[in-house]
């Protein structure tokens, strides 16, 4: 029972999802819409709560045990609680009862997203520019002709994206464009087809109950 009920539910819902596109009938369409828009969305919300609970417990334990960098867990928990209060009781754009502005200073959750998360995210991703450049410096050595090919194509594409490339020669942006559209497309397409075929095989194994690792241990 501990394995058969979840497995039966997986197979039944899997078949409903699988046949959705092939059954243009109001009945199955309504069922699919209910599953997609109501049932599974609510279930996914609870999964998020579980994940957040896990995060909070993890950082409480980190503070309790005074693990490495534990004071930063206060930052995480404090910012989470404060922003959650603002978001839950102030509404997405500050339309609920909790005050989300002082004078002209807005601090509703959407503003927090735009003014804190976006700068932090952009800065973190842009950090990679420095590290990728230094990694390229260390690893881009033309040891053989295939490595040289990689180096040259990367160099041309980088040069083709900036005005300097067109300044050196108007052909460089065109070659860069060609590399992106022809050999890059061919390689990406081959890799993508391989990945998707592999994924489909795994999905079908899950649907037919052959792949059961998601059930975890037998407890």
């Amino acid at each position: 029972m501990r394995e058969k009920i979840p497995l039966a539910l997986l197979i039944i819902l899997g078949l409903i999802g699988l046949t959705d596109r092939f059954m243009p009938h109001p009945g199955p369409e309504a069922l699919n819409q209910y599953l997609r828009d109501t049932l599974l969305r609510i279930i996914s919300a609870f999964a998020l709560i579980l994940g957040l609970g896990n995060l909070i417990v993890r950082h409480f334990n980190r503070i309790k045990r005074k693990e490495e960098h534990w004071p930063h867990s206060y930052v995480l928990l404090g910012s989470f609680v404060l922003a959650s209060i603002i978001g839950l009781f102030g509404g997405v754009s500050g339309e609920l009862w909790f005050p989300t502005s002082i004078g002209g200073f807005q601090f509703d959750i959407t503003t927090i997203y735009n003014k804190i998360l976006i700068p932090l995210g952009a800065s973190m991703f842009s950090l990679l520019a420095f590290y990728m450049a230094s990694a390229a410096y260390r690893s881009f050595r033309a040891r053989n002709w295939l490595a040289a090919l990689l180096l040259i194509s990367a160099f041309i594409v980088m040069l083709g994206q900036v005005p300097l490339g067109a300044y050196i020669s108007p052909v460089i942006p065109e070659i860069s464009q060609w590399i992106m559209e022809v050999p890059n497309t061919a390689a990406k397409r081959g890799i993508e087809l391989g990945i998707i075929l592999g994924m489909l095989a795994t999905l079908l194994k899950i649907l037919t109950g052959i792949e059961r690792s998601w059930l975890g241990s037998g407890r």
Binding site: R41, I49, L52, H72, S79, A83, S84, G87, I112, L120
Partner: peptide, 22 residues
Amino acid sequence: FGEHLFVGVANAFTLSFMYHRI
């Protein structure tokens, strides 16, 4: 500090969004 603030605020935003939209 920036890293932990990012995780805290991002999760709070997701929680608020999920609460108000789902």
